[in-house]
């Protein structure tokens, strides 16, 4: 996969424009640093927080939660999505609960999960998994249903086993849709981890946000933490895009 210079230029140009607009808002609006810090002070605090070791343990904790939560949510979403696609009974039975679970704000559920499962890793993994589950289940269901019916008919004609049909026809056919769900799911996993940490925890970027905001009143550190979260989200999204390009090729 080659990266074109013009693509890089657009990304860098967009970032420069974003920083310029931010700085203009700070200067023209006359905002004091505790309301809206300048990009320079945030960048300085960002570097300082990484250098003095403030950021690292929190990032490691959040990444661990994201990895486990995404793995659990994606695995469950794939299985349930397949069931929904292939079993009308499963769809009728499960759909109302799945939609209801998705419609319930995770912010309201998170404290309950922390109460039931403690404020350790487990509750955060569950929160992450819950939020990741829905887009992957739905994208899997849509992907499996969109598999060419004639191909499936042909498999039956050649007496292919269910595992052969799954591996050779259904998964390859549904992969673009499933990976689309992964793109959404992986960014939601970041949100899930942060929400889980807000519901209780000793470490993690969500905890650092609370510390910066509620205990230290360090607005530049708050922004530096938000920037770190955004960078993690972008990195994970790009990882899925790269995986997608490798498995199904570039779109468009």
């Amino acid at each position: 996969m080659r990266v074109r210079a013009s693509d890089v230029a657009w990304v860098v140009g967009g970032a420069v424009l974003f920083v310029l607009v931010w700085q203009a808002v700070v200067v023209v609006g006359g905002f004091r640093p505790f309301v809206l810090p300048s990009p320079f002070s945030v960048a300085t605090r960002f570097v300082e927080a990484w250098r003095d070791g403030t950021m690292e343990p929190h990032v490691a904790t959040t990444l661990g939660e994201i990895a486990l939560g995404f793995a659990a949510g994606a695995a469950t979403g794939l299985v349930v999505g397949y069931l929904l696609a292939r079993s009308r009974m499963a769809e009728r039975l499960l759909s109302p609960y799945i939609v209801a679970a998705q419609a319930t704000p995770v912010l309201a559920v998170a404290p309950l999960l922390a109460l039931w499962f403690g404020t350790g890793l487990l509750s955060k993994v569950i929160i992450c998994a819950l939020i990741v589950f829905f887009p992957i289940a739905v994208s899997t269901m849509v992907g499996i249903r969109s598999v060419d019916a004639e191909l499936l008919e042909m498999c039956r004609a050649f007496r292919a086993t269910p595992s052969q049909v799954l591996a050779k026809v259904e998964v390859p056919g549904a992969l673009p849709s499933i990976l689309g769900g992964f793109r959404v799911g992986v960014t939601l996993a970041v949100i899930g981890a942060i929400v889980g940490e807000w519901a209780g925890g000793e470490r993690g970027l969500g905890v650092l946000i609370n510390l910066a905001r509620g205990s230290l009143f360090d607005t530049p550190l708050l922004f530096a933490t938000l920037a770190t979260i955004a960078l993690i989200g972008i990195a994970l999204y790009m990882a899925v895009v790269l995986l997608e390009r490798r498995l199904v090729g570039a779109r468009g």
């Binding site: 607009v21 203009a24 023209v28 609006g29 006359g30």
Partner: peptide, 14 residues
């Protein structure tokens, strides 16, 4: 974009 951002949009200028 710059002009829109600089206008402040009624945000609290302290």
């Amino acid at each position: 974009l710059l002009a829109a951002a600089c206008s402040g949009g009624g945000s609290p200028g302290p």
